[in-house]
């Protein structure tokens, strides 16, 4: 350092500290901002809150008019969701009515005149959803990071055409391709299998994920890796140690987008699965009771269905804000 700079360090007054900051008012201002934010968030979340409440209402409370805001919570919806039931015969009803020592479950049976005869398929379907969506998300992100890096950094013959081809995979509406895929899958023995669904969702997610990640990786200056290359690292080591840590935001955003797609996907799941590999989305609307629509049960299913996505998004939230606004605020 030269005299001038060094001198600055010793100098008793630092010029850069002279900008005045005054006032205590920001406290009140931020409190008001907070309250407004809470009110807006509440309004936006009313449907979700309503769903959560309905999940804990009894079947009758769920359909009461006017709607009940205060109610006695029950797990009836969840019980219905996870069980198979049958109508009690008149004789059985009479039997229950005679007894005086009914516990709460038996009271419920009497009240609804239905009894549990076994497990429903919902738990299995939720598990299928977790496996299929989870695996396809992981595969999409891994493959997409690798190919996006290649597209971003290397001279590939026909690069632009390839990129367009990849994007075009996303252009066909699912409905159009379900039938051919259904026929193909039946031939290949992939119909109603986990692998089939993972494969399908992965390939469907890839096109979007590659494009999204390429944008992120393009933004990472290539000097970082070149510095590592010159410093004695191989291309792959440089990728792992230098590029990946900086692409975290993009990877997080891609993960969430892929997960949401795979998790919510309805059309393919409806056509290509029946029993073993059926996921939750096609089955939730089928939770219809015999005596009218069981809103509590549907709400319970929807709520459980929501939770995994909420958890993942919550874990990755730090990266997401930068991730999803990416492209909108690119620097110069």
């Amino acid at each position: 350092m030269m005299a001038n700079q060094t001198y600055q360090a010793q100098s008793p007054v630092n010029f850069s500290t002279r900008v005045d900051k005054v006032g205590r008012r920001p406290m009140i201002a931020s409190a008001i901002k907070g309250i407004v934010a809470i009110i807006i968030a509440f309004i936006m979340l009313i449907p979700v809150i309503w769903m959560g409440m309905t999940a804990f209402k009894s079947l009758s409370d769920a359909v009461s008019v006017p709607p009940k805001v205060f109610f006695t919570p029950t797990v009836e919806g969840f019980v219905n969701l996870f069980t198979q039931q049958r109508q009690l015969t008149d004789a059985e009803v009479a039997q229950y009515q005679e007894r005086t020592d009914l516990n709460w479950a038996e009271q419920l049976v009497l009240q609804r005149q239905k009894t549990i005869i076994g497990q429903s398929q919902f738990a299995g379907q939720l598990l299928n959803s977790l496996i299929i969506a989870g695996a396809s998300t992981i595969f999409s992100v891994i493959f997409a990071v690798l190919s996006a890096y290649a597209f971003s950094r290397f001279e590939i013959p026909g690069k632009d055409d390839l990129l367009f081809f990849i994007l075009s995979q996303r252009m066909l509406p699912a409905v159009v391709v379900t039938v051919p895929i259904f026929l193909m899958y039946r031939q290949l023995g992939l119909y109603d299998t986990h692998i089939g669904m993972i494969f399908l969702y992965t390939s469907f997610n890839l096109s979007f994920a590659v494009w999204l990640l390429k944008g992120f990786i393009d933004e990472i200056p290539k000097e970082y890796e070149e510095a590592a290359l010159v410093d004695g690292y191989t291309r792959l080591q440089a990728f792992r140690k230098v590029v990946l840590p900086q692409a975290v935001t993009g990877i997080a955003a891609t993960t969430v987008f892929s997960l949401i797609f795979s998790w919510n996907e309805y059309a393919f799941a409806l056509m290509l699965t029946s029993d073993r590999a059926r996921t939750a989305p096609p089955s939730i609307p089928l939770i219809l009771g015999t005596g009218g629509i069981e809103w509590s049960t549907i709400a319970a299913g929807s709520m459980l269905f929501l939770i995994p996505v909420v958890i993942v998004t919550f874990i990755l939230r730090k990266h997401l804000l930068r991730g999803v606004t990416f492209g909108a605020i690119r620097k110069g």
Partner: peptide, 17 residues
């Protein structure tokens, strides 16, 4: 390859992790 040339490169910007 670059790694084995035993050269050090200082870039205009960006190369710090």
């Amino acid at each position: 390859p670059p790694a084995e040339r035993d050269v050090a490169f200082v870039f205009q910007q960006y190369s710090l992790y």
